[in-house]
Design a binder for these strands. Structure first.
Lengths: 149, 149
DNA sequence: GTACATGCAAATTCTTTGCAACCCA
DNA sequence: TGGGTTGCAAAGAATTTGCATGTAC
């Protein structure tokens, strides 16, 4: 289910931030590109199509703000730039498979880690708020290509 | 158990790389700082104590090389710089707890993910080589500080 | 009206690269 | 000896910041 604009407006106003057209557009770009892992530059390019005068700095500032409000999640797949995606409701069960050959990032879901959070909480006294799991390896496509040789 | 220098020499020579004093020193720094998550700048500072004429570029090149040889593991905790640690034998069971308040990174071990790798392998046709799990939350120390208020 | 936002350009920070001198095997 | 390696300085890439102007509420 998509994030509602009014919900975002409310969350912004709660901290005296404003819902500007730029911010709306950036959220829209994420809604229209689900399952992508957009970088600041990616977002900049996409927003520019509709609103050419936007500045890259605004994109950076907005991504930062939306991540603080937990509307976006920041990620890092080792290519030297931050990547963002909408925080979905099922977030805790949503992980990433990163292909070491072609760099593609796929998603997978599993709730196995729920129980692990409880263990860590008890054993280390660490109050877990969130987690990220990445698995590195070779994707199905690259495996087939390898076999063709 | 510490990594043996001879082992590293062998792994380098296997690919026609040389074991230079700089490379030795960098490995030494990691051996002497277990459980740390050193950035390039950190390593540079530490190596400089013994070998002041080393260049930062050499540090970057060496970290990169050692990571390719799987002697070091690269990580990213969201502070804008890559961090490295020695790849240990128990690597697959070794994960990170990142405090959102003070930024401290602690370690914890668990082998729960072993079985998950097999599931992903079968379900997604993805050949897993490695994985990284990070849990974000509030560490024990910051929780106590919070309670004192 | 006013405090927050924006766009632009300059500044920072992290990392990479070119190249001549150097040195491990 | 010779091809990998180093240190230095310059280049590059991602991100941040200062500031005058603009705007949501």
């Amino acid at each position: 289910m998509p994030i509602k604009l009014e919900d975002i407006r409310t969350r912004l106003h709660a901290k005296d931030y404003k819902l500007t057209p730029q911010r709306q557009l950036i959220v829209k770009v994420f809604s229209e590109n689900p399952n992508e892992h957009l970088s600041a530059e990616d977002v900049y390019g996409l927003v520019k199509e509709e609103h050419p005068e936007i500045g890259l700095a605004t994109v950076y500032r907005t991504l930062d703000l939306l991540a603080q409000l937990d509307i976006l999640r920041v990620m890092n797949f080792g290519d030297g730039r931050s990547r963002y995606e909408l925080t979905d409701i099922d977030d805790h069960h949503h992980h990433h498979l990163i292909c070491l050959q072609c760099g593609t990032v796929a998603e997978f879901n599993d709730d196995l880690l729920e129980s692990l959070e409880a263990v860590v909480q008890k054993r280390n006294g660490f109050k877990v708020q969130n987690h990220q799991l990445k698995m590195y390896g070779i994707c199905k496509e690259c495996q087939s290509k390898e076999n063709e040789k």
